[in-house]
Simulated scan of single mutants.
Amino acid sequence: MGRLTGGDPSLLRRINSAVVLHALRAADRATLTEIARVTGLSRPTVEGVVEDLAAAGLVVEAAPEENTARRQGRPARRFRFRAEAGHLLGLEIGTRRVTALLSDLDGRVLGAQDRDVPETAPADERLERLRTAIAELLRRAGVPRSSLRAVGVGTPGIVEADGTVRLSTALPGWTGLRLGARLRRSFKCPVLVENDANVAAVAEHWKGAATGCDDVVFVLAGLSPGAGSLIGGRLHRGFGGAAGEIGALHLLGRGETPETLLSTTGRPLHPLDEQAVTEVFALAREGDPRALAAVDRFVQRLVQDVAALVLALDPELVVIGGLAAGLDGVLEPLRRELARCCLRPPQVALSSLGEAVVATGALRLALDHVEQQLFAVDGTVTARRRAR
């Protein structure tokens, strides 16, 4: 990065600080001379910036390596980014479970905690189970709540920018819930709330099957499927946050509703009864003919829903997660249908993150927020951010 001259000195300091901090974070450890070479800043400037970052607790001098310490002469001082200077939480609020993941500022997961929740639990009970899981996780990890820099949350439903759930049919008492405001009472750091399929797409792009792909559709295949999309590596939420709600396609008058697709009795499944859906899948694997027919209906509808999304977005990759991720043979019908109706069929893969996908994406949401604080100046992220 070339040197900047003139302008606001305080802005220059912020830019230099962000550039140096990024260089240190990208390296395991580095000398002042190495940092100067990478950033293009003068060595005295780098030295001053490192001193300021050390005073802020973000940088520390690294202990010399054992083989280096044995050499004659004083080794060059090396510094490292203090990933332990703060912590992040990634939370999933699901129909039957709440999950909390804890990480350092590099996104390394330090612990996880789950709590089962009845599907019919009201909002207050569900949030209390989540608070209990968080408290236990922090206690076990020995991390004080004051160390948290950001909290990401993934939840079913259409979520507004302030964390209010505008619509959710999956959780009782969730529609209209000011979820972000409720959770912020428990933390002194930013809390970011997003739709579960959206954060799942982010997770797969970060650590899962979509690593290296910037145009991705993630399908969270449940009783009422949803999808999250990345376009050019950026999450696409739509104008009102409702992009990817493919579970509503049955409202176009295509016959069976989602509740009847997986029924083996002729009676609709309860919209919240995912346990019954799991049992249908298990019966199908055992060869039960009615369950096999129900699963076939489910797969065919899923194929149609995904095909509609692919035709609109033309992604490089479609990742299937959720209930369908455990179904043998879901990929081939999907590939055949996409090959039949799409000009350029995408690759198709199952989620590689399994049940952790939503909480992992929520953690990435929190990490993105912290990186904006550390590496952005006046809303512009500094150059040469490490690809994650």
Rank of each mutant, 00 (worst) to 15 (best):
L4W: 14
L4Y: 12
G7C: 07
L12V: 06
R13V: 09
S17M: 02
V19W: 00
H22Q: 15
L24G: 11
A26F: 07
A27M: 13
R29L: 12
R37D: 14
T45C: 06
T45D: 01
V46D: 00
E51A: 06
L53R: 12
L53Y: 09
A54Y: 06
A56K: 09
G57S: 12
V59C: 10
E61F: 08
E65W: 14
F79L: 04
F81Y: 15
E84S: 12
G86K: 05
T99L: 11
G107V: 13
G111V: 07
R115W: 01
P118E: 11
A123D: 00
A123G: 07
L130H: 02
A135C: 05
L137H: 01
A141C: 02
G142W: 12
S147A: 15
L148A: 10
A150G: 14
V151P: 06
G152P: 11
I158H: 09
V159K: 06
S168F: 08
T169D: 15
L171W: 03
L179I: 15
G180P: 05
R185P: 04
L192F: 13
L192P: 09
E194T: 15
N195C: 13
D196I: 13
D196E: 14
A197F: 15
A203E: 04
A203W: 13
H205Y: 09
K207W: 08
V216C: 03
V219P: 01
G222D: 00
S224E: 10
G226Y: 07
A227Y: 07
S229K: 04
I231G: 00
G232C: 06
G233K: 09
L235G: 04
H236M: 08
G241R: 03
I246E: 14
T257V: 00
T257M: 03
T260G: 02
L262R: 00
T265Y: 05
G266N: 01
G266P: 04
P268S: 07
P268D: 05
H270Y: 07
Q275F: 06
Q275T: 02
E279D: 04
A293N: 09
A294I: 03
V295S: 13
F298T: 02
V299R: 12
Q300P: 00
D305W: 09
V306L: 00
A307V: 05
A307H: 10
L311S: 12
L311T: 13
P315E: 05
L317N: 08
V318S: 01
V319M: 02
V319K: 02
G321E: 05
L323Q: 07
A324E: 03
G329F: 05
L334R: 05
A339K: 11
A339D: 03
C341N: 06
C342Y: 05
C342N: 11
R344V: 14
S351R: 12
S352D: 06
L353D: 00
G354N: 04
A356M: 10
A359Q: 08
T360P: 00
G361N: 03
L363T: 06
H369V: 01
V377W: 12
G379L: 14
T382G: 14
A387G: 15
